[in-house]
Design a binder for these strands. Structure first.
Lengths: 143, 143
DNA sequence: TGTTATATAATCGTGCGCGATATTATAGCG
DNA sequence: CGCTATAATATCGCGCACGATTATATAACA
């Protein structure tokens, strides 16, 4: 009987999680390139479409990212004309991120992306729901 | 009745996958720091502990990584004294990656890492198995 | 009020991750 | 053999990702 090898890639949960996340974001590329967005920028825009005029810190909490990642990313989105970064009047420490007209309009061009991507996943809607629920549970346990 | 928003983060599978992968690798840090490994280096070492004397290309297929990522990573592992990179005698294009004694010995120090990490996941072993099966299926569908 | 603590972004350094290109070696073929 | 095609790595450029530090602003409080 072969011994169980705890350090084999195929016995790890972490490895398929790591690899699947990379592969998934790679699959987005052809859909996001026409919008001029990277995957992380797309995620940031989704958060902003759900509610802008939010501080960098609050955006970071939603995306699990800190200012070291977000500040340069938001500057690139600003350079693209999709967002504005303005110091808060009430609290000069905070930077408020808001959408420009162009950024708001981009939503219409992005609205089909989730459906296009769903077509690439060879798993059933039930499995998607199950997977999402498990991942949310894992994420929550790290909070 | 509120409309379904396809672009909301909480309606996406991709986002918890992306976020959970990041959080998981972050959780590894305290266990890998004493070994002098990053998460990706740890994954590469796991593949090599399962069988070294492998080409960069074959290692990349196992890890879903290309030479642009692997070459510098392997050079860092070589600088740490964990691996050797030698041109193949039969095919001068290929580079063979093998473990040093120190690299082989590192396995003993790493053998408890999976168990330590499992303790951090607040999900049942059944859920782990289920999650792993679903992720493997997603990965396979991208192949 | 003045001083210290805390909060918020920005910056810095290092290491992925990957598309694109360059370099060198082997294979195929006339 | 010479020529072209293909294969294996390496390099380049850019954008995350994040721990650590810095700069500035607000809060707390003696």
């Amino acid at each position: 009987m072969p011994e169980f090898n705890p350090l084999a890639l195929e016995n790890q949960l972490c490895f398929p999680l790591y690899a699947a996340a990379k592969e998934l974001t790679r699959q987005y590329k052809p859909f996001l390139d026409p919008l001029g967005l990277t995957y992380t920028q797309y995620v940031a825009m989704m958060a902003l479409w759900s509610g802008d005029n939010i501080t960098v810190g609050d955006l970071g909490k939603k995306l699990y990212l800190d200012s070291a990642t977000l500040t340069p990313l938001l500057k690139r989105l600003e350079a693209h004309g999709y967002v504005r970064r303005t110091r808060s009047r009430e609290d000069e420490r905070a930077v408020i991120v808001s959408l420009t007209e162009e950024g708001r309009a981009l939503r219409d061009k992005a609205v089909d992306v989730p459906h296009c991507m769903a077509g690439r996943l060879n798993i059933t809607p039930e499995e998607v729901a199950q997977l999402k629920a498990l991942l949310d549970k894992v994420l929550q346990s790290f909070r």
